[in-house]
Design a protein around this nucleic acid. Sequence first.
DNA 1: CTTTGCCTTCAACATATGTTGAAGTCAAGC
DNA 2: GCTTGACTTCAACATATGTTGAAGGCAAAG
Lengths: 132, 132
Amino acid sequence: MSIAAQIPSRFTLTVKDVATTAGVAPSAVRFYEQHGVITAHRTAGDQRRFDESAACRIKVAKVAQRVGLTVREIADVFVTLPDDPEPQDWQRVAAVLIDEAETRTAALQAYLDEMLSGARLCEIDNRIEVPD
Amino acid sequence: MSIAAQIPSRFTLTVKDVATTAGVAPSAVRFYEQHGVITAHRTAGDQRRFDESAACRIKVAKVAQRVGLTVREIADVFVTLPDDPEPQDWQRVAAVLIDEAETRTAALQAYLDEMLSGARLCEIDNRIEVPD
DNA sequence: CTTTGCCTTCAACATATGTTGAAGTCAAGC
DNA sequence: GCTTGACTTCAACATATGTTGAAGGCAAAG
């Protein structure tokens, strides 16, 4: 009967639904779809329909962006999620994201440590007396 | 005698010097100066001269950008460095940067944990049988 | 003092991450 | 069936982070 019967039944949410739930603008929802962070089915009238995971993916993406991941990188991680992910799939994705964040923080820490201990970097300890 | 005698003697490095040491393009050096990540003195001929810390600041900035800090945010941290910083000044800056990185990673971790345990987010565990 | 290379500013371009508005389509209520 | 609001695409704009090129100035070497 309903048009939506032609696509998997869990794809029922409109752009606005997802935008509201995720706390972003509708334009951002379209943007994230264009860039592979979320996936949409189309109705017979060519309108996007999302499942429940869309808002979640966006919310995760926003937090992941704060640790320096690009939209592309986030999409690359999400693409490993099956169509209808199980908790274990999300756990794997979570582990990948956290690992990447920690790797980057470790790189920062390592660079700062090197700078502060090695101390030949920067002007630090360039305090040797120079003859007049 | 020398023109440079008019400015603090440690400001001797040209844009190219700093760019080479920091491993970035000269244009990036000018960009970072415009945005307060590094500071320059000017020669009588209006050319920029940097001290040794410039390349270091840029290298730190590049790594900090990878953990999601913006150039503005990095400049705001660096602005707390005195003119000729001591190791302790750099240590404080390092602590601020690491703290920010860890805070953001913790936010990601917290959000993912909430999602995976609470499980009312996303479609996870929407696997309850629905009566026909 | 001229050459040569780096310097200057400024504007345009490029990519990432979005937002806004125009022109037109779809869907749901009256 | 018409109105209304949300949907569509597409182009333009906006901000962040730079790069590139043009037009011209400065500095050091011969």
